[in-house]
């Protein structure tokens, strides 16, 4: 496993520069898009859609245990609206499912 990465710094600098450009590009793009109408509607809906995409990706990339734990976390989120509680429930659910439930 002890692969020697001789010079990591060019990779670090390239990744840093490109990542910052992406972030700043979003800031500039957002500023230039229209403030009303169709573009604004889309942009207002973007955060929720991105979060849903992220959650879908994270949950679906797993197996039935992850799907079930995701459902449990969603139920806790609906009932409590609490971030820490949902996190605790999700972690506990996946830990129990992985260690004690043969699927």
């Amino acid at each position: 496993m002890n692969e020697t990465v001789t010079d990591i710094y060019p990779v670090i600098f390239a990744l840093a520069l490109a990542t910052f450009s992406i972030r700043l590009g979003g800031v500039l793009l957002g500023q230039r898009l229209p403030q009303s109408g169709r573009w604004a509607r889309g942009l207002n809906a973007l955060p929720g859609c991105l979060i849903i995409s992220l959650v879908s990706l994270l949950v679906l990339s797993g197996g039935p245990r992850e799907w079930l734990a995701g459902g449990i976390a969603a139920a806790v989120a609906l009932l409590t609206r609490s971030l820490p509680l949902t996190m605790a429930a999700g972690i506990a659910a996946i830990w129990l499912l992985r260690n004690f439930v043969p699927i």
Partner: peptide, 25 residues
């Protein structure tokens, strides 16, 4: 091994719930 990989999945589920704006979503 600790189930901690699910921490962010659960966190984003909670956050998604709070971003629901109504049936238009």
């Amino acid at each position: 091994a600790l189930g901690m990989d699910f921490a962010f999945t659960a966190a984003f589920i909670a956050i998604a719930r709070s971003l629901w704006r109504g049936r238009g979503d």
